[in-house]
């Protein structure tokens, strides 16, 4: 097949059935726009929840132990796989912090030097509540540890909310994708149906099904590029320009995988795949079922 013929027919197809092509492009555009926005919002919500989770500290209060025991404890706790970071707060530092936080009233109490030394442990954001809970049990049993405190309720709440967010986001995303696929496929089918005379005439003069199909596939890809390009542009504008004007804190949140072009590229790619796949599916079925005879 001549490439020139395929390109000419593919682009001419868009012009010949403008309304059908516009409908296909529009439905593809809406579908990938919704998926793009949902991905970005979902990612940022997940990111925020992880940030909050990371801020939940495990505080390990020590008994009155010597320096060697403190060092041993620091090493043992630091070796636990879910421990991301830990800081040692000596008795002196604890008094200093106390003074800073309680101001003048704290001065008198600080002199009593009753505050114990402690470790402030930050756990990995990948760690589950169960893992943190078991870490707490383990540390509690170490010799020299007086008490371990962490906000279990807050962590459990965060984990539940994150799980719900992921589940609801995935369900909405899948639903949009499913509806979009049905919508896009049927629109493309209508576009192809509008060209049934062309298909019939091609079959009549001996065109192979592959030959008939290729311009439709190209048309689907072109529709995908247009719809994906528009949706990607809008998503970029929305999250990099428009939303930060009204919600300045959004500017701090990052694009998935750190760079804008992953999501933008993904949107364009998804639209192209949907356009191509939709055209292929509809064209295959329709071309196979179309007969030459009409009367």
């Amino acid at each position: 097949m001549s490439l020139g013929y395929m390109l000419k027919e593919g682009f001419a197809g868009l012009k010949r059935a403008r309304l059908a092509a516009f409908t296909s492009i529009f439905s593809l555009f809406v579908a990938v726009l919704l998926i793009g926005v949902l991905t970005r919002v979902g990612f940022n919500a997940y990111e925020v929840s992880q940030m909050l989770k990371q801020q939940v500290e495990v505080e390990v209060f020590l008994e009155n132990v010597d320096e060697q025991t403190t060092n041993e404890l620091q090493q043992r706790i630091g070796e636990e796989p879910i421990v991301a970071e830990m800081n040692y707060i000596s008795r002196d530092s604890a008094s200093k912090v106390f003074r800073e936080e309680f101001g003048m009233g704290g001065e008198a109490l600080a002199d009593l030097n009753f505050l114990p030394a402690s470790f402030r442990v930050l756990v990995s954001d990948e760690a589950s509540v169960a893992q943190v809970d078991s870490l707490v049990q383990v540390i509690n049993d170490y010799r020299g540890v007086d008490e371990v405190r962490f906000n279990l309720a807050l962590l459990e709440l965060l984990e539940r909310r994150t799980e719900q967010l992921v589940l609801i986001g995935a369900a909405i995303g899948l639903f949009i994708l499913f509806v979009a696929i049905i919508l896009v496929f049927n629109t493309i089918r209508l576009t192809i149906y509008a060209k049934r005379d062309l298909i019939r005439a091609m079959k009549l003069v001996g065109a192979t099904n592959g030959f008939i199909r290729r311009p439709f596939l190209l048309e689907g890809v072109v529709q995908g590029v247009i719809a994906g390009g528009l949706a990607a542009g809008l998503v970029y504008l929305l999250f990099d320009w428009i939303v930060p004007i009204y919600f300045t804190q959004i500017g701090v949140l990052s694009w998935p995988f750190g760079e804008w072009y992953y999501l933008i590229g993904g949107i364009v790619l998804l639209a192209i795949i949907m356009g191509w796949w939709g055209s292929r599916w509809a064209a295959r079925k329709f071309i196979r079922e179309t007969t030459v005879y009409t009367q």
Binding site: M202, G206, A207
Partner: peptide
């Protein structure tokens, strides 16, 4: 060659292209 009563010409192409079409699809 197949000829039908209802012509089955493509209305958006001129006479030349309607005939050339049969040869284009065969490469």
């Amino acid at each position: 060659g197949i000829v039908f009563q209802d012509f089955q010409l493509l209305p958006d192409r001129n006479v030349y292209d309607n005939v050339a079409f049969a040869l284009r699809v065969t490469g």
